[in-house]
């Protein structure tokens, strides 16, 4: 399920004013549409910073990044917000649901920012919440849900805006093995049914097993980038 480059980052450098060595040093990465990529490496290797740049949460110090054929390396904060809204979904290790919002409100939030009217938002969200198996939890607050349920809500929210690219930062990191596997299954299902490109930041080899391709970073550089036999190939 590959075709064109959705992520085409070249010579990405990221420096922070208070650090002597760059966090990312000349990183180039090309992800085809529909790929499932694991971004791996020890802590401090720069993988979170790379994810932030790929997710348009931050811009690179140098280098070019084009997302879906569009150059996004030099956007204003407002333009980056627009790109995130329409192209990217995020799943985080600690779920990052909004605590005083219900399940339904959390899932509809991106659609609210996209300017959809209430009926359309709720119709789309309901379908997704059913899909992730939480149809009976619509009015619950995050605090009333288990970790696995929270991550399902977060995944529903991440894909509700029909993004092309889903970035997951340690999506199973806060979950036990069984729940973690269920979450990975759900991500793969959504990948298949929604033509998603998935980039998963992880240091869990079991999670990496699910992916078509593993990229290893160390000290801000890519040290290996290759396909291996994926469990779900």
């Amino acid at each position: 399920m590959s075709g064109f480059s959705i992520v085409d980052a070249r010579g990405i450098c990221k420096e922070f004013p208070n650090m002597t060595s760059p966090v990312l040093d000349d990183v180039s990465i090309d992800v085809q549409s529909g790929e499932i990529v694991a971004l791996m490496g020890p802590s401090g290797s720069g993988k979170s910073t790379l994810m932030n740049i790929l997710g348009c949460l931050d811009g690179p110090t140098r280098g070019s990044y084009s997302l879906g054929g569009r150059d996004v390396s030099t956007l204003t904060p407002r333009e980056r917000a627009w790109v995130r809204l329409h192209y990217i979904g995020f799943v985080f290790q600690s779920f990052h649901l909004i605590a005083d919002h219900t399940v339904l409100e959390n899932v509809t939030l991106p659609l609210y920012y996209a300017g959809l009217d209430r009926d359309e938002r709720e119709a789309r969200a309901l379908e997704l919440i059913e899909r992730v198996g939480l149809g009976d939890r619509l009015g619950h607050r995050p605090a009333q849900l288990s970790g696995g349920e929270k991550q399902r809500v977060a995944i529903a929210r991440a894909v509700s805006g029909k993004p092309r690219l889903l970035l997951a930062d340690e999506p199973t990191g806060a979950l036990d093995t069984k729940t973690g596997n269920e979450v990975m299954e759900l991500l793969l299902e959504l990948h298949d049914s929604r033509a998603l490109t998935l980039i998963i930041v992880t240091h869990d080899p079991e999670v990496a097993e699910f992916c078509h391709r593993q990229i290893f970073l160390r000290d801000g550089k890519i040290i290996s980038d290759g396909s291996q036999h994926a469990a779900h190939a």
């Binding site: 627009w82 995130r84 990052h96």
Partner: peptide, 16 residues
């Protein structure tokens, strides 16, 4: 702050 970060990551513009 974190809530604002979440909203921003989701795609809320600074104006919103």
């Amino acid at each position: 702050t974190q809530e604002i970060g979440i909203r921003s990551a989701i795609g809320a513009s600074p104006t919103q």
